[in-house]
């Protein structure tokens, strides 16, 4: 799409959508939302970018290599946080018993490992959504 209005509006909107996505990911433990919905929102903003500016530009911003690292990395964050539990509490994915500080209820820094896991899930979901969209709409070419 070559419409200048659409492009400028998208440029303005996308940071807000991404900010909202990050907000939802980080506030998963105090309000509705969490890794999945936030990650999906973040991914949607990048999909919007792709729709307006084309696949080539979007792929420059979010290349295959980045997406590969983000996908494995999201789960590896999740796993490594879980593994801490094995050493400190004797069980995989322990939270309180593993010594994660629970913090004050309702504040951003509470819930022990919950926000950390949400971040891992969010990274994973966002990158997955974008990569899926790119792969599905791309015409086969060399």
């Amino acid at each position: 799409m070559d419409d200048i209005i659409v492009k400028s509006i998208t440029r303005i909107i996308i940071p807000f959508v991404q900010l909202y996505g990050i907000f939802i990911i980080l506030h998963g433990h105090v309000s509705p939302g969490g890794g999945f919905s936030g990650g999906a929102l973040f991914g949607t903003s990048l999909i919007l970018y792709t729709l307006i500016f084309g696949v080539d530009k979007a792929q420059k911003k979010f290349s295959h290599r980045v997406s590969e690292i983000a996908e494995s990395g999201g789960i590896l964050i999740y796993l490594s946080i879980g593994v801490i539990g094995i050493f400190t509490a004797g069980y995989f994915l322990s939270n309180k018993a593993a010594g994660f500080p629970l913090g004050e209820a309702g504040s951003l820094l509470s819930g022990g490992m919950i926000p950390l896991l949400m971040i891992g899930v969010g990274i994973k979901v966002a990158s997955t959504m974008v990569t899926l969209f790119h792969t599905l709409i791309m015409e086969e070419r060399l």
Partner: peptide, 10 residues
């Protein structure tokens, strides 16, 4: 036990 007020998240 978890410190999160959103039960679903916990």
């Amino acid at each position: 036990e978890t410190g999160a007020i959103n039960i679903i998240a916990s």
